[in-house]
Structure formats: C-alpha cells, structure tokens
C-alpha cells in the first residue's frame, strides 16, 4: 500500500488570507502605537497597577525574609558579641597593665633621679607590708642584708626622705617612717639654717622640735636633714613647714608643724641608701 501526499485544500487557502491581514493590521497598530505614543498613559496605568500588586504580594515575603535574616544576624551578633566582650576584657586588662607599668615607670624615673643626686649608692625595694600595730608607722620592704641593707640606713622615696631601716633580715627589712611616734631626725631650716629635731606625730605628720622662740620660721620654709645625727647624710629633703605656733607659755621652743615631702601613704617603691663603709666591705 503506497502513501499518497496530502492534497492542498481550498479551505486552507481561505484561512491564510485573514491571518495575513490580522498580522499586518497588528503590526501596523504596534508601529502606530510606539511611534505616536497614544497608548502610553494606559500602559503606565497598567504598569502601576502591576507594581502595586507586586509590592503587595512581595511585602510579606520581604518582611519574612527580613525576620529570617535578622534572626541569622542575631545568632551571629550574639556570638560576635561574646567574642568582642572577651576581647574588650582582655584589652582592658592590657590597658590596666600598661597604665600600671607607665605609672611605675614614672615613679622609678623619679627614684632614679633621687638615686643619681643622692650622696650614697642605693638599692631600690618594694613595699610589701605594714606593721600589725596600726599606730606604728613601720613598713616592710623586700630587700635585706643580702642586698647590702643594714640597720639605720636612710630610706627615700619620690619627694624626699621616708625614714630609716630599723630591722633587717636576709631578704626583708623594716623601715620606720618619719611620721612614727618614735622617729627622730636631725634637721635644719634651709633658709636660715635653724637647727632642730624632726619628730613623728602619727597621722598629723611631723614637727620640728627644739627651735627656740624668736627664731624666724615661716610657713613654706624647706626643711632638710642636717647630718648631725650620724644616720642621715646632710641635705636630704624632709618637708615643708605647714604651721608655726608659739607653743605654751612654759615652752622654751616654738611649735613647728612640718609636712613631709615624701608621699608616705602612697610609697610603693623606695630607695635605701647604702652607707659608704658598707659598700667598702
């Protein structure tokens, strides 16, 4: 059985003509619309409507997406926050350490200046404790006989004279401060060379005793060691006169309150001056 080619029917030819006409008319219409711009307002209105619909539908989705993203961010932020907090704590710790080192550096520089200007060689030590009897102005330092320290050696800190060594073990020493009730230092007023004895008065500071009435002493006068006691070398800064009074009628001497130049309550590092004969040994 042979296959015969399909015959072209008259109906097909009739349908082709309207189709061509439709295409031509549509083409002409499109060209006309694009060229003349007649339909632009309608197109824009349609686009706007579409846009509104799109935004209406998209809005919940976008919010949902935002919530999801925020949640993810929060999770990350929480972790990041913890990491940052840890870093902040570490940095604060480091800053404190550096600040402490800076302050210590300043103090040591001041001590170094004193050390260079002091008449004898010195040993730097740290304050590690105070006396259990709180009315005694005595501190413990972390240097002793093995550092060349012995009893009656002068001790300085930033500002001036701090006191003298009263006990010494191999690695530690006790220092009696200027303000201790039992402390005595031979001193003189720098301006007029008036001599006296510096006595400790506890929390009130010190007083310059045995200066006769009538000797001209003024508030602000500088008091230095006189070297007559054989313990402290001459010329170490003790403090400044903060008050002068006539004392009682029966007193032969003036009352002269002295504020120590050394920061006694804040001393953390001290300089112990080694007596020359000890160095020779």
């Amino acid at each position: 059985m042979s296959r015969q080619p399909p015959k072209k029917s008259k109906g097909n030819k009739k349908a082709l003509l309207p189709a061509i006409i439709t295409v031509v008319v549509l083409g002409l219409t499109i060209v006309l619309i694009t060229k003349t711009g007649i339909i632009v307002p309608a197109e824009m209105a349609l686009k706007d409507t579409n846009g509104r619909l799109q935004s209406l539908v998209f809005s919940p989705f976008s919010k949902l997406k935002l919530i999801w993203k925020s949640y993810l961010d929060l999770v990350n932020v929480r972790e990041e926050n913890e990491v940052l907090k840890a870093q902040l704590a570490q940095l604060e710790n480091e800053i404190t350490t550096y600040r402490e080192a800076l302050i210590e550096n300043r103090r040591l520089k001041q001590l170094l200046d004193i050390k260079e200007s002091a008449p004898w060689k010195g040993v730097v030590a740290h304050v590690i404790g105070t006396d259990i009897a709180s009315w005694r102005a005595v501190i413990t330092i972390d240097a002793g006989k093995e550092n060349g320290i012995d009893v009656d050696m002068p001790v300085l800190c930033q500002g001036g004279l701090l006191g003298r060594v009263i006990e010494s073990s191999m690695a530690f020493s006790k220092v009696m401060l200027l303000t201790d009730y039992h402390s005595r230092v031979a001193a003189l007023v720098q301006r007029n060379r008036a001599r006296g004895i510096i006595k400790g008065e506890g929390s009130r500071g010190c007083k310059l005793d045995y200066v006769k009435k009538g000797v001209d002493i003024q508030v602000g006068d500088t008091v230095v060691t006189s070297g007559l006691d054989g313990v402290f070398p001459k010329g170490l800064l003790v403090g400044k006169v903060k008050a002068v009074g006539p004392g009682d009628r029966s007193d032969l001497f003036q009352y002269i309150a002295v504020k120590p130049s050394a920061k006694i309550d804040e001393a953390e590092e001290v300089l112990v001056l080694l007596r020359p004969q000890k160095q020779d040994e």
Partner: peptide, 20 residues
C-alpha cells in the same frame, strides 16, 4: 588575718582604725 591585715594597708592607706 596577720597576713591580710599587714598587706591590705599598703593598698588602702595607713589609718589608725582598721579591721582587726
């Protein structure tokens, strides 16, 4: 208490009144 009382004054400043 001996250790604490003799060391904390270094930081707190020396005052007559203290916790004993």
């Amino acid at each position: 208490s001996l250790i604490v009382e003799t060391t904390w004054c270094v930081f707190c400043g020396s005052t007559l009144l203290h916790i004993d």
